[in-house]
């Protein structure tokens, strides 16, 4: 029953779902599962961390004590106190200093790489920035411990070099490359006609950059800074190793502090599953999750804002 001439095919002859049609449907379902996995994981992260911290959140959680008490004394057997104020101060001081270090560096580097450098120089610099971003955080922590620590002791004549300054600089160096890349993207997103128009008016290159390109790219640059903040806020190993890890609301750059993330990393291994202390650490995790979620969301909205314009 084989027809050789398909001169006048009818519906029944070719409108049949063949193997390829079913394969396509199957693949569509499979890749859809991959697609929603990201949503599942985000929800899963929030759910599981919340479940583990639930006991404390429901029974003993006091907003006032948790956020406003500077006393983090989980191992006090009679009256353990779980105040994260000092830890928040530690994280904030280190992240703040990191931004003071990273913003000028990454912005400067982004302008140089994006607007001044050309050809080989530009490519090599970009590669170096990328390699800088690739250094694992535990190695950064090790650098803080072994290189920065003695350096700070020598330079500033202080007894210990593991402190806000050390961790802030380390964190700044860690956050700078990613901020540089995003800032450079933001500069690249400024249409060339802006530059041409300014140049046609007789502006010099630096005038073009400072009066035209930077203002036009300011949202993207803000997004870069926010992502840097998110990075610093969530960084764990480097701040664990370089802050000095002592609960303290810092008065100066040379005070040791302790970060939220580092507290979890240092103490989770010593707590019994399900204990108050264990649950408090998960509660800190929820707090970290929510804060970084908001930061990332804001950064994304800002960056997307410029892209959609």
């Amino acid at each position: 029953m084989e027809r050789t001439s398909p001169a006048q095919p009818t519906a029944a002859e070719f409108d049949r779902r063949n193997l390829d049609w079913y394969i396509d449907k199957l693949v569509q379902i499979l890749v859809f599962i991959g697609g929603i996995s990201a949503i599942v994981f985000i929800i899963g992260i929030f759910a599981f961390v919340t479940i583990e911290g639930a006991g404390f959140l429901l029974d003993d959680f006091s907003f006032k004590e948790f956020f406003l008490s500077p006393f983090w004394e989980p191992s006090d057997e009679d009256a353990p106190e779980y105040g994260i104020l000092a830890l928040v101060a530690g994280t904030a001081s280190v992240t703040g200093l990191a931004m003071i270090v990273a913003i000028p560096f990454s912005l400067g580097a982004a302008i140089f790489i994006g607007e001044f450098a050309t050809g080989r120089t530009r490519e090599s610099l970009k590669v170096l920035v990328e390699l800088l971003a690739a250094i694992p955080s535990v190695v950064w922590g090790f650098i803080g411990l072994t290189i920065m620590n003695p350096l700070i002791i020598d330079l500033f004549d202080v007894p210990v070099g593991l402190n806000v300054l050390n961790a802030g600089v380390i964190l700044g160096l860690m956050a700078a490359p990613i901020m540089t890349s995003i800032a450079e993207d933001a500069l690249k997103a400024v249409p060339d006609r802006y530059r041409e128009a300014a140049e046609a008016l007789g502006a010099t290159q630096w005038e073009v950059i400072f009066k035209t390109v930077l203002p036009a790219a300011k949202n993207g640059l803000l997004g870069a800074v926010l992502l840097g903040v998110g990075r610093g806020f969530g960084e764990t190993m480097a701040v664990l190793m370089a802050t000095g890890h002592s609960v303290n609301i810092p008065d100066s750059l040379f005070d040791p502090v302790r970060a939220l993330t580092a507290t979890i990393a240092a103490e989770l291994g010593e707590t019994a599953v399900g204990s108050d202390h264990y649950q408090v650490l998960f509660t800190i995790g929820i707090f970290l999750f929510l804060v970084t979620f908001v930061i990332n969301l804001t950064a994304d909205l800002i960056v997307r804002g410029i892209r959609d314009q």
Binding site: A38, F41, I42, I45, V49, S137, L227, G230, F233, G234, E235, T236, M237, T261, I264, A265, G285, L288, F289, T292, F293, I295, N296
Partner: peptide, 8 residues
């Protein structure tokens, strides 16, 4: 997912 801190 990319922004969630590693300790979380």
């Amino acid at each position: 997912l990319a922004g969630v801190p590693s300790i979380v």
